[in-house]
Design a binder for these strands. Structure first.
Lengths: 345, 345
DNA sequence: GGGCGCAGTTGAAATGTTTCATTAACGTAG
DNA sequence: CTACGTTAATGAAACATTTCAACTGCGCCC
């Protein structure tokens, strides 16, 4: 069957008694080769266990069959849902998807990008540590199809797909005010993250429009967007003097919200009676929390799918123009802000 | 700077006024080329924005610089932790990691493997839908370094890294019995998953050894290991006649446990007083649940790291012998089984 | 001053594909 | 019978790298 190294087209050609051009035709344009020879070649391939060498194909054809997604934080399920959306689009286009994880470290990100460039991937999707990083411009200038996911670039240096975070901040606060809250905490950070700024901005806008005193929208900064930071924000919140302590919290993502939820429940507060909580992203675990979490839903898979389509357009359409796609997030109200109808009485 | 296509070694050589063999030497054996020319070449590379073409390198050198992990279920954070462990090991070995997701569908898995074979990846790590699938044997026979992660192969066809699931089942039940429970439900399925069988087996072994009546260890089968199935198991559990209703549940993974937890809390039961819950895997969200979840911890990252080391050994060491690595899981007790010291009185 | 060793550089071969111009075979129309 | 068209198969070139044997100076020793 196989005697050492893996068989090449040449071996198949010899075994089938045809030229190696014909073998290639069987793989790439089966219609031009007669049924008889095609069958003979296919049998030879099966017998030898031939597997096409993708490097050689790519080298000659000049085109790779993979996309890549560089995700920001592997511990946040949100990004995996985005990746799943990309994967579906890639599958439809018969491409492989290379998933990398920068773990929020710029130097890992750059190392990944370097590798991807060497692989000559067909396009790169990325949720960058910093959307303005100069090496992203290098990529764009090089002509590598590039789409920024879940972040924005305001100059049109490349495509991006994101969500209207200002709007997301607005609907969260509108909902809380509707529920009667007049003192609300905003939990998120660091402020270097554009989304944190924009979600906060949306919150403040609507707060002001409703004529509520600015001081009653309390900003509780965090150092990261993790469960652990959510918990520690909970402690700080509990430590606030009563007259400043909010009756509701709006968290910049669900991880923070879940951490907060756990901490305050552990401290004996009731949710939502003592503290209502709104998250952001609507990851799967949000609905599955013990007090199901009200959250601002991002169309996570859609985000990935749309990004993949943009990158494919850039890769294949010579008249491609960079676009900034915007999705509008919507609030999903659950028990963490809406008290259940009392069980009896 | 660049005039159309990306520059090749030849362009660099021309720009630096050396032969292309020298350029290659600068990249691969800098010590053999004089400092003066090396510097000249490096300058030329920078000016042209040269990036080595990995396909060509791989074609000629015959060796790829990537590992691949085919994960079973992208919605389960457990596998991402495993992947993270692999990633660290790959980073140490200066390799890239290609992450694929089969979503528990055998045909996707096979398609991924086919692609990876074409890419001639240096080794494949996989948590397979079915560890006995014939195409896995094909891989092994082909000589592709292959490690099965978090599943077992009893014949020594390839390496595997797993956890002692029988033991995991034992410690979970021992803990519950210690806490005074005498009627316990086991939630998990489908039984085609080896781990489900073994965790249940461990549970039954210890149950019998303690002389408890077999009928009081109730098996509640599920169709999958997801949050949704956990919730539905919770409904079935609530519907059980009181004399058969367990006072504790041991779930085959944390996703099930989280779903169950949410459902029973929503139904007004108290955890652990009315129902104690033990999960398996100890994913990050287990500790962050509103009632922090007691769970059987698998060394998730360690699993990945060890698997990566095995695959690298197989790839590089001619005297490699297949090994079956076993980790021993340990119980992490939290509030879902241990009632907190009463707050007052 | 001829031979030798050494450091540095070169040029060609090789890797496994794809592509494309060319050839071969075989009818069929004139 | 020739010329032509069609269909099928061929062979060589090209892709970007790495490797390695061969070459070139050059200083040194006898």
């Amino acid at each position: 069957m196989l005697n050492g190294r893996t068989p090449s087209v040449k071996d198949v050609a010899a075994a089938a008694g045809v030229s190696l051009g014909t073998v290639s035709n069987v793989m790439n344009r089966p219609e031009v080769v007669s049924a008889r020879t095609r069958e003979r070649v296919e049998r030879a391939m099966a017998e030898l266990g031939f597997v096409r060498n993708e490097s050689a194909r790519q080298l000659r054809a000049g085109t790779s069959r993979t996309l890549a997604y560089v995700m920001l934080d592997g511990t946040n399920p949100f990004f995996h849902d985005v990746a799943q959306g990309i994967e579906f689009a890639a599958e439809d286009a018969d491409l492989s998807l290379f998933i990398c994880n920068s773990n929020s470290r710029a130097e890992r990100e750059e190392a990944h990008l370097d590798r991807l460039l060497q692989q000559r991937v067909q396009g790169i999707l990325i949720t960058p540590v910093n959307p303005e990083a100069p090496y992203l411009d290098d990529l764009a200038r090089r002509g590598v199809p590039l789409v920024i996911v879940d972040r924005r670039r305001d100059d049109g240096a490349c495509c991006s797909v994101a969500v209207d975070d200002v709007h997301g901040g607005r609907v969260a606060i509108e909902h809380l005010v509707e529920q009667g809250h007049r003192r609300v905490g905003f939990i998120g950070g660091p402020e270097s993250i554009g989304q944190v700024r924009e979600r906060l901005q949306g919150a403040r806008e609507v707060w002001e429009e409703l004529g509520l005193p600015a001081d009653d929208l309390v900003y509780l900064p965090t150092e990261a967007m993790t469960v652990a930071e959510g918990r520690s924000a909970g402690e700080r919140l509990a430590g606030l003097p009563a007259r400043r302590r909010p009756t509701a919290a709006f968290c910049a993502n669900d991880l923070l919200a879940l951490g907060l939820l756990q901490q305050v429940i552990g401290a004996g507060l009731r949710v939502p009676d003592d503290l209502a909580i709104v998250g952001f992203d609507d990851i799967e675990f949000a609905a599955a929390a013990a007090v199901p979490l009200t959250s601002v839903r991002q169309p996570r898979q859609e985000l990935g799918r749309a990004a993949a389509q943009l990158v494919l357009d850039e890769a294949t359409n010579p008249h491609h123009e960079h676009q900034q796609l915007f999705f509008t997030p919507e609030l999903v109200a659950r028990a963490s802000t809406i008290a259940p109808r009392p069980r009896s009485r």
